[in-house]
Amino acid sequence: MGGYLRAMKRYAVFEGRASRSEFWQFTAVLMVIIFIALIIDGAIAQEASLDDKKSPGGIITVLVVLAHFLPSLAVTVRRLHDTNRTGFLVFLNFVPPVNLVLVILMCLRGTPGPNQHGPDPLALGGGTLTTAGLPPAAGGSPVAPQMAVAGPTRHDTIAELERLGRLRKDGHLSDAEFEVLKSEALTQARAS
């Protein structure tokens, strides 16, 4: 659900990158919403047919699809950017036999580290959450590795928590990733 909300917050932002999880969470939630809209439209049509009235047929589904058209294009373009490809490949979506290529591209791992479209969106390293690729803290390097070497001061911990908060606010970290990194920072601060 976090990926869906991040994509909707960046409703028409075609710049930057989107991770696989953001794209696929957005897609999964959108499919559920469309399915629910179809059920509602079916119930409305059935009710109208029982009353011998003509129903507006599928209006809820049409509204849902229209409301999600632009964010869907934007998250797809950002996902293509994450794999270091041009966003214009989104037009493959409109060519039925070729659109399977786009599905394959959406499944590929993003470029590790920054690329021409921006920083790594979730800073994933080898499938595990790390601080590699995250913007550095005030000291010039990510704080979590510093904390492992030398005990952090109270100021270091506060600076790290503020940095993580900014990353979450900017959409570079999901709520779950923020909680994991916050917990690590606090655990390391307590250990010193």
Rank of each mutant, 00 (worst) to 15 (best):
P97I: 07
M106D: 05
L181G: 01
P119D: 04
F26W: 13
G151V: 02
L167T: 07
V32A: 15
V13P: 07
F14C: 10
G57P: 05
G165V: 03
A185I: 04
V77M: 12
L66D: 10
G126P: 04
A37H: 04
T83R: 15
A191C: 02
A138L: 03
G2N: 15
P135F: 05
L164E: 10
R79N: 08
A48R: 01
G171D: 06
V101G: 05
L108R: 09
E47Y: 09
A12P: 11
S141C: 02
Q116V: 02
L161E: 05
H117T: 04
G16V: 06
L161P: 05
T187M: 13
H81K: 08
C107P: 06
V29P: 13
L186F: 00
N84H: 09
P71Q: 11
V90K: 04
T86E: 05
L108D: 03
L100A: 11
A74E: 06
H81I: 08
E22F: 14
D120R: 01
H81Q: 08
A138T: 03
C107I: 11
A159E: 03
K182N: 10
Q188M: 14
G127S: 07
T27M: 15
E179M: 15
V64I: 15
Q46W: 01
P114E: 13
M31K: 11
D170P: 08
S174F: 03
A189C: 06
L134A: 00
F26L: 13
A150Y: 00
R154I: 00
N93D: 07
V98F: 11
G139C: 03
L5E: 08
P97A: 09
G171H: 03
P112K: 04
G58A: 03
A189E: 10
G133E: 00
G87T: 00
T187F: 07
F94A: 13
S174C: 01
S21C: 11
D82R: 06
Y11W: 14
E184W: 05
P121L: 03
V64E: 06
G126R: 02
R166G: 09
V98G: 05
L38G: 06
E177C: 08
K169T: 12
L105S: 04
